[in-house]
Amino acid sequence: MSRPSTFTPPPGARAHLLRTPRGEFAVIEAGTAVKGTVLLVPGFTGSKEDFIGLHEPLAEAGYRTVAVDGRGQYESPGDVDDEAPYAQVELARDLLAQAETVSDGSPVHLVGHSLGGQISRAALLLDASPFASLTLMSSGPAQISVGQQQRVKLLRDALAVMDMQQVWDAIQAMEAPEPEETQTGALDEGLDDRAELRRRWLATSPAQLIATGRQLCAEPDRVAELAAVTLPKHVLSGERDDTWPIPILDDMAVRLHAHRTIIRDAEHSPNTDQPKATADALIGFWDRIAR
């Protein structure tokens, strides 16, 4: 589960509902599109809050940012029982509608984290015209690693027989700190966000988690298709990743002829682990495109 540094939008940002031809989506928006607009797409169990640390530095560099909750994610409405609305092609069409709505007439820079990267890829393969560039952030070429597939299967099995509160309680029991760690206070800072994480979890659609979890475990390799699309591409990750190991991401970047960035001291979520370095890498990539 991604852990945003905060759930509070930074100064100058605003949370609102984005109305599109595909429905309403909760977003956090910041900045003015001096250089362009950026659409930020979160990953599995994530939300728009995963990008909170990026808004200020990107806005200062002249980029308008729009981070979105996908259908059934956190504050965006979605069916809780029916998995059909969460088919990858449907989520990709949602993303195209979001891009059309946020665009000021110019193509949009697209950033997809993890699952969000694979949905972004699917959207771009449907229609690349709304986009100025694609950044795949900690998002690999095909299905997730075997270890992560096992974790996702456990979650899907649990959601089939338990409600979201029961699954949350089970997750917390498995992640409970050791007694001596609790006594030293070493984990106090990490526990401060527990209430917000629980609220996000309970607001997320179980059907969305089941459907997208299945996608992550069965995603085919579509790198050759994506490489054939003429668009600037960027593969960004931390220096460690147990969802898609770094050599797999390195190879994907070569196959895509993509710019490659590795963020030091970051793992699967460089956007929350090292937001300033991640923002700098994104700005550098987009500014080079403009030049």
Rank of each mutant, 00 (worst) to 15 (best):
Asp273Phe: 01
Glu225Phe: 11
Ala253Phe: 07
Asp221Glu: 09
Ile262Trp: 01
Leu231Lys: 07
Val229Ile: 11
Met162Lys: 15
Met164Pro: 02
Ala207Trp: 00
Met174Gly: 15
Ser269Trp: 01
Asp287His: 02
Lys276Ile: 14
Thr212Asp: 04
Ile246Tyr: 07
Met252Gln: 10
Met252Lys: 00
Leu209Trp: 01
Leu231Phe: 07
Ala207His: 06
Ala203Val: 11
His268Trp: 04
Arg240Thr: 13
Asp241Gly: 08
Trp286Val: 03
Leu236Trp: 01
Arg255Val: 15
Ala290Asn: 04
Gln172Lys: 14
Asp280Leu: 07
Ala266Gly: 05
Leu187Trp: 12
Arg264Met: 02
Ala266Gln: 08
Ile263Asn: 00
Asp273Val: 05
Pro206Tyr: 03
Gln215Lys: 12
Ile289Val: 15
Pro232Met: 00
Ala186Phe: 10
Ala279Glu: 03
Ala290Ser: 08
Pro270Leu: 03
Pro275Trp: 00
Ser237Pro: 06
Ala173Asn: 11
Gln208Ile: 08
Thr230Leu: 15
Glu181Phe: 10
Leu231Val: 12
Pro275Ala: 03
Ala258Gln: 04
Arg199Trp: 09
Glu225Ser: 13
Val235Leu: 04
Leu159Gln: 05
Cys217Ala: 12
Trp286Leu: 00
Arg260Lys: 08
Asp193Gln: 12
Ala186Met: 12
Arg214His: 14
Asp193Lys: 11
Arg200Thr: 04
Asp241Cys: 05
Asp273Tyr: 06
Leu226Lys: 08
Val161Tyr: 08
Ala228Asn: 13
Leu197Arg: 01
Arg156Ile: 15
Val223Ala: 11
Glu219Tyr: 10
Asn271Pro: 07
Leu187Val: 15
Leu209Gln: 12
Ala281Pro: 04
Gln166Thr: 14
Arg260Gln: 04
Arg194Phe: 08
Pro179Gln: 10
Phe285Gln: 07
Ile171Glu: 11
Ala277Gly: 11
Pro270Glu: 00
Arg156Thr: 09
Trp168Ile: 00
Thr230Met: 13
Val167Ile: 06
Thr182Gln: 13
Thr184Met: 08
Asp273Pro: 02
Phe285Pro: 05
Leu209Met: 09
Asp280Tyr: 03
Leu231Gln: 11
Ala195Leu: 07
Gly213Ser: 02
Gly284Cys: 05
Pro220Gln: 03
Gln208Thr: 12
Trp244Tyr: 12
Ile262His: 04
Cys217Glu: 15
Thr212Val: 02
Gly185Met: 13
Asn271Arg: 02
Leu216Val: 05
Pro206Gly: 05
Gln165His: 12
Asn271Ile: 10
Trp244Ser: 10
Asp221Gly: 12
Arg288Thr: 15
Leu202Val: 07
Glu239Trp: 04
Asp221Cys: 10
Gln208Glu: 09
Thr272Pro: 02
Arg291Pro: 05
Thr272Leu: 05
Met252His: 04
Gly190Ser: 15
Asp221Thr: 06
Ser269Pro: 03
Ala160Leu: 06
Gly284Asn: 04
Arg198Val: 01
Gly190Asp: 08
Thr182Ser: 15
Arg255Asp: 05
Gly190Val: 04
Gly238Ile: 01
Glu196Met: 14
Asp265Phe: 05
Ile171Lys: 07
Asp163Met: 07
Arg260Met: 01
His268Gln: 07
Trp286Gln: 01
Val229Tyr: 03
Trp244Met: 07
Ile210His: 04
Val223Pro: 02
